[in-house]
Write a protein that binds this DNA or RNA. Structure first.
Length: 958
RNA sequence: GCGGGGGUAGCCAAGCUUGGCCAACGGCGCAGGACUUAAGAUUCUGUCCUUAGUGGUUCAAGGGUUCGAAUCCCUUCCCCCGCACCA
């Protein structure tokens, strides 16, 4: 099978691309432009990535069917260090990397050239285009392919940044970024591309509290500056190494490690002399903010590599402090050793400072008692700390001791107190990493202050407001994101947009030591697809694509002949490019994975809004969720996922496409499951086989033909409706499951009329084309067409093809058969004869009355009974009439009036059932009789006929 | 914490915006029948309980609104994801 399907796939792809139906130019038709957010070039992709890509192709193909001129371009994003680190790993002959490459589709003799990052990008660009996108039959205009490493693309990005600067969207300010001490900037992220370990580390902000002590300051680091009102003493690790350093005019004491880190963050810092921790014990120092003198005491828990290696003690709210304080108070030996004033130490008591719901006023004391912590170093302290900090931060309020801060929530007090202390010179700020991070080169990673960092000002009020406005007008899927994106835009702040270090990317036009980072050069780019073709074919060259070129073709600013004169580009060509840009733009749909929710999509929107005129702002966003591996994300770096070409071979491309479209809502994660995919392989095959079977039929017409055509025509209408919201799952369900069941039913009913079948195929195959294009083309050809289905339009429906009454009649038959099956199941009878009774005419009267009352909202059993009994003919039926009235009323009250109304539609049940007799006899293998209830002379020993109701015949099984 | 998503029958998974055609699409699995020498494929029937086609109890749990709720409101429990320089 797979061999055959691969052949078919190749055959049709060749024909599509040879006929160039994928290549699009501006014309008179309405246009539709859509993209998927281009993937980063980081190595081989896995089957999960094809999900979103496939959605875009299916949508693009459907839009073509609807008559749109559809541009679906693709590109790749190579900015960053992915290719560099991959090349480096190849260069140092890393076996894992080599296995990974060769285990995919990389030929061994390619390895040598892949030591060059540029070749890595080129190599994968080829893999993505040829082994993934073309392999899946995508209807992309390949001539427009672009990549962030291409010089013409980079000219575009530089132009974008010039425009950002013009709009005041670029700002410069200091920034604290992780950096290797020998390499410079590195990225800390879970995939650990730059680093050896510490991918989970976060940058944390410490407040440095300065304790005046003689002519120097002991500098403690804290994450909770709001607790200064509870300070009772100061902790020093007696065994740690400290140093005196000069910071500006002041002398600070911090740990050796802290001094090392601070040299990356303070401009004017100089080491003076080392100090032993033990020398610092027993001193009196002046606590900031509260201006109390407190004593420095020894504590082992103080880690010289965390913060400054000095800690202020707040035993009321810090379990560590409380436990250590108690320990030292009870430890006379230690007190003696350091010559401490025992009475003074033992007199120290915690000071309550924060009120929090569900806690006493000394939460640290409470939590340690509750958890049974008695000694320093207890591993449970970590949890205790978290418990108290979490509740304290979110629910706590400063109590009366906090002076002007009394009554403030901790959350607020924290920030205000920190700022007040910094302003008064009692505190400073220091950044550190929450855990040790080591660079690839083995050196330590620290937080480094960058003085002249550039940011894109996404907090810009005007751009934010305009973006939110635009978001309201856009089609955004899922609906939850439509609601949520406003919040995301509000929360979007300045973003560092350039970086230094060993990175692939575009040089920052205002200062070439900077490289524009990865998120920032992938926001406005969809518009570049309207231009890239000209650079790719060589009509324009990168060096001609300066500011005035883009100003003209994108912003329609300036004069074509002048620009022509200065760039050397033909004026006509310039006008043509400008017209192209304005024809294709705005972008109708940008589809990307959920990872883009708070990163790419808001930046994408804001850049468009900030830089382009309103009529070029984007119109749609579609977010798809992921395909997950068993027990987590399918990981590129960690492997375990099947290579895409292998999966295509094994399951068939159309089956995979159908799998993505149908397995679940696009807005939910899916677990990859071989068996599920196999199910779609067989579904595709079944569909194909069934249609081929039908094509071979050539018999008499019958009453089901009208039904069949009506069904299929209705489905065309429904699919169109579903695709208005890109609801591919419903569409797939309709085409590959519902319509498939129709076809089966048609055959079961003996349908075999060639003209009907031809019409059905003409209606159905176009609906299959977006999701399973290869199979659809193959069947299109088999059914006698010699054009390309992929270049077709949706068929026009003919007058009267949709006939609801025919569909209802078949439903009626199914309903009757369900009832019969139920009876056969319950009774276990093997039928020798079945008699069907349609309802007596007077019952239709009753149903009409019931519907009449229902529509007025007055349907109740007594009301209907009364009305029924006022009718001459019906009244004559006596108890039977009142029973039926009750049953009808009860039954109908469960339905909506609109639904109930269908019951009064007239339908000649008797003739229809009689016409279906032959079919039913075959189905049940017994003779079938059809009568109207009350018809004289019919044997009905069990009096079943009286159960007949309109649209529900009575059944007697014998 | 902030922000977001979710809990549906053996499993996967629709439905929830716009309450009534919902015992709840579809698929998988399972059981039985047909076809077949057999297997597979295909197809039909069934798959909460009960039952001559009826009735009962279900959509995390508990309340409420309504003639009527998986769908609306409130409360509780549980799960997942994002929080930025990482594509």
């Amino acid at each position: 099978m797979s061999i055959r399907s691969s052949e078919i796939e190749a055959k049709w792809q060749e024909r599509w691309y040879a006929a160039r139906i994928n290549e699009v130019e501006k014309d008179d038709r309405p246009k539709f432009m859509l993209i998927f957010a281009y993937p980063g070039v980081t190595g081989y992709l896995h089957v999960g990535h094809m999900r979103g890509f496939t959605y875009v192709d299916a949508i693009a193909r459907f839009k073509r069917l609807e008559g749109y001129n559809v541009m679906f371009p693709v590109g790749t994003h190579a900015t960053g260090n992915g290719a560099i680190s991959l090349a480096a790993r190849i260069a140092r002959r890393d076996q894992k990397t080599i296995d990974y490459l060769c285990g995919n589709t990389c030929p061994v003799d390619m390895l040598e050239s892949l030591k060059d990052p540029v070749r890595v990008v080129e190599f994968f660009n080829d893999v993505y285009v040829n082994q993934y996108w073309k392999r899946f039959g995508f209807m992309c205009d390949w001539r427009r392919f672009t990549s962030t490493v291409k010089p013409d693309y980079q000219k575009f990005i530089q132009w974008q940044f010039r425009k950002l600067m013009e709009r005041g969207m670029l700002i410069q300010k200091p920034y604290y970024a992780p950096a290797c001490v020998s390499h410079g900037p590195v990225a800390i992220d879970a995939s650990e591309t730059d680093i050896q370990c510490g991918g989970a580390a976060e940058t944390v902000e410490y407040t440095l509290l300065k304790f005046k002590c003689g002519d120097m300051y002991l500098v403690a680091a804290t994450l909770r500056p709001e607790t200064v009102f509870g300070q009772t003493n100061f902790w020093v690790n007696p065994d740690a190494d400290y140093v005196k350093v000069r910071v500006g005019q002041e002398t600070w004491v911090v740990s050796e490690d802290a001094h090392f880190k601070l040299t990356y963050q303070l401009d004017d810092i100089e080491k003076i002399s080392p100090v032993k921790g033990s020398e610092l014990i027993g001193l009196r120092c002046l606590a900031p903010m509260v201006h109390r003198e407190i004593l420095t005491l020894p504590a082992d828990f103080v880690d010289p590599d965390v913060g400054t290696g000095l800690v202020t003690s707040v035993p009321s709210d810090s379990p560590d402090d409380w436990i250590s304080l108690r320990a030292v108070q009870e430890d006379d030996a230690t007190l003696d050793r350091f010559g401490l004033d025992k009475a003074a130490v033992k007199a120290i008591r915690p000071v309550a400072i924060i009120e929090m719901k569900g806690w006493s006023d000394l939460p640290a004391v409470e939590v340690t008692e509750r958890m049974g912590i008695t000694a320093p170093g207890d591993p449970k302290l970590e949890e205790a700390k978290k418990l108290v900090y979490k509740d304290g931060f979110h629910t706590g309020k400063m109590n009366a001791t906090a002076g002007e801060y009394a009554g403030l929530p901790v959350m607020e007090a924290k920030e205000r107190m920190k700022q007040a202390m910094v302003a008064s010179g009692e505190a400073a700020v220091m950044y550190d990493l929450s855990e040790q991070v080591t660079c690839r080169c083995g050196e330590r990673v620290v937080v480094k202050k960058v003085n002249d960092q550039w940011f894109i000002d996404y907090a810009n009020a005007e751009a934010t407001a305009a973006s939110k406005e635009q978001a309201k007008r856009m089609e955004i899927f899922p609906a939850e994101y439509y609601q949520n994106i406003h919040g995301v835009l509000d929360w979007f702040r300045e973003r560092a947009c350039v970086r230094q270090g060993n990175w692939i990317g575009t040089k920052f036009p205002f200062d070439e030591k900077w490289i524009i980072e990865a998120i920032s050069d992938s926001t406005l780019y969809p518009i570049y697809y309207t231009i890239s073709k000209y650079a790719n074919e060589g009509s324009i060259r990168a060096e001609q694509m300066g500011e005035e070129f883009f100003d003209l073709v994108i912003l329609d600013k300036g004069d074509a002949s002048k620009v022509s004169a200065s760039t050397g580009i033909d004026a006509e060509l310039l006008r043509k490019i400008r017209d192209d840009v304005h024809y294709w733009y705005p972008l109708d749909l940008n589809l990307g994975g959920k990872e883009h929710l708070t990163v790419h999509f808001p930046a994408f929107l804001m850049n468009h809004v900030a830089l382009l005129p309103r009529e070029m702002w984007p119109r749609g966003i579609f977010v798809n969720w992921w395909v997950m591996g068993k027990g987590g994300k399918i990981s590129k770096s960690k492997g375990g996922a099947q290579p895409i070409p292998g999966a295509a071979e094994e399951y068939g491309v159309d089956a995979l496409r159908l799998y993505y479209a149908h397995i679940a809502s696009p807005h939910a994660d899916v677990d990859w499951d071989n068996e599920a995919v196999e199910g779609y392989t067989s579904r595709t095959e079944k569909m194909e086989r069934t249609l081929l079977d039908l094509m071979s039929l050539d018999g008499e017409g019958s009453e089901v033909d009208g039904w069949m055509v009506s069904r299929m025509a209705s489905r065309v209408v429904r699919v169109k409706e579903m695709m208005r919201t890109y609801d591919l799952r419903s569409m797939a369900n309709e085409v590959y499951f519902e319509a498939f069941n129709d076809l089966r039913w048609y055959q079961r009913r003996g349908g075999c009329h060639a003209p009907t079948i031809r019409r059905v195929l003409d209606l159905l195959l176009p609906l299959m084309m977006p999701i399973t294009p290869h199979t659809a083309e193959e069947l299109w050809e088999a059914s006698g067409h010699n054009d390309l289905l992929s270049a077709r339009l949706l068929p026009e429906l003919q007058e009267g093809e949709i006939d609801v009454s025919k569909e209802r009649a078949e439903d009626y038959l199914r309903g009757m058969m369900d009832d019969a099956n139920e009876i056969l199941k319950v009774t276990g009878i093997r039928p020798a004869k079945m008699t069907l009774f349609t309802a007596a005419p007077w019952k239709h009267e009753v149903v009409s009355m019931a519907v009449f009352l229902h529509e007025k909202g007055e349907l109740k059993v007594p009301a209907l009974t009364k009305m029924v009994m006022s009718n001459e003919t019906v009244r004559g039926r006596g108890k039977e009439a009142s029973d039926f009235a009750r049953k009808t009323a009860e039954d109908m009250m469960k339905r909506s009036p609109a639904e109930a109304k269908k019951l009064v539609q007239r339908f000649d049940e008797l003739s229809f059932l009689r016409a279906s007799r032959e079919f039913l006899e075959k189905e049940y293998g017994c003779s079938i009789e059809v009568h109207e209830a009350g018809e004289p002379g019919i044997a009905d020993p069990q009096n079943k006929a009286r159960q007949a109701a309109p649209w529900r015949p009575a059944i007697l099984v014998e």
